[in-house]
Design a binder for these strands. Sequence first.
DNA 1: TAAATACATCAATAATTTTTGATGTTAGGA
DNA 2: TCCTAACATCAAAAATTATTGATGTATTTA
Lengths: 110, 110
Amino acid sequence: MEKEIPLLNNMNVSAIDFEKYEQKFKALADQQRLQIINILALKESVCVCDLTPIIDMPQSKLSYHLKILLEADLIKKEKRGTWNYYSLNIKELKDLLSNQLCCVFLPSCC
Amino acid sequence: MEKEIPLLNNMNVSAIDFEKYEQKFKALADQQRLQIINILALKESVCVCDLTPIIDMPQSKLSYHLKILLEADLIKKEKRGTWNYYSLNIKELKDLLSNQLCCVFLPSCC
DNA sequence: TAAATACATCAATAATTTTTGATGTTAGGA
DNA sequence: TCCTAACATCAAAAATTATTGATGTATTTA
């Protein structure tokens, strides 16, 4: 059962919301992950193998960071054969970030 | 000297920017701090002594979290006598968050 | 079918962040 | 001047996250 916090604003903000936002902001709260998002903003869809040479990171580490972004629903994953293609979850990012930030972390936003 | 990352988007995104955003998102990436922001969104300006009973937290812990928000420039502090009043840095939050999120974390945004 | 590529996952370690309780500082009141 | 309230800060411990290198699993390709 969801714990209800008294109406604190003109929106009904429940505890579960804070938890959700915490996860999303945590995913954003890392320079390396912000860089990944910034690269994805350019490339539409990128496989891990393309990402590894661009971003200077061991493969397992990259995998770890991609997973965090994925679990926060900020990016999407699509498997094609042996390759896993990642792309931005544009709707989610727009719901989260200001237009100004979209210029940095979303394609063709400005 | 600031490391310049090649132009990755229609904005000139330098390494230092990622660092700045990392700090701000880190500050947001915590349920307790989000709750503090949400309370400040209602109250305009609140002293720590008013906050302590509302938010169930030892004083030193509250002080710690306020400092993190302050250092990320998401809130402001004003000293009046013995009291320290905190309030949202509305401009900064608007620059960071979507309108949708402003409804939760900013006053009279929706 | 054997080897190689493209990943994910795991367990151990390292690093960072958070919590706690104690102490320090400053301003105001008795 | 002494006492108290309202904080900030500090150091130690606890908790969480991140990094690393190794291993596992598909899917291709030779």
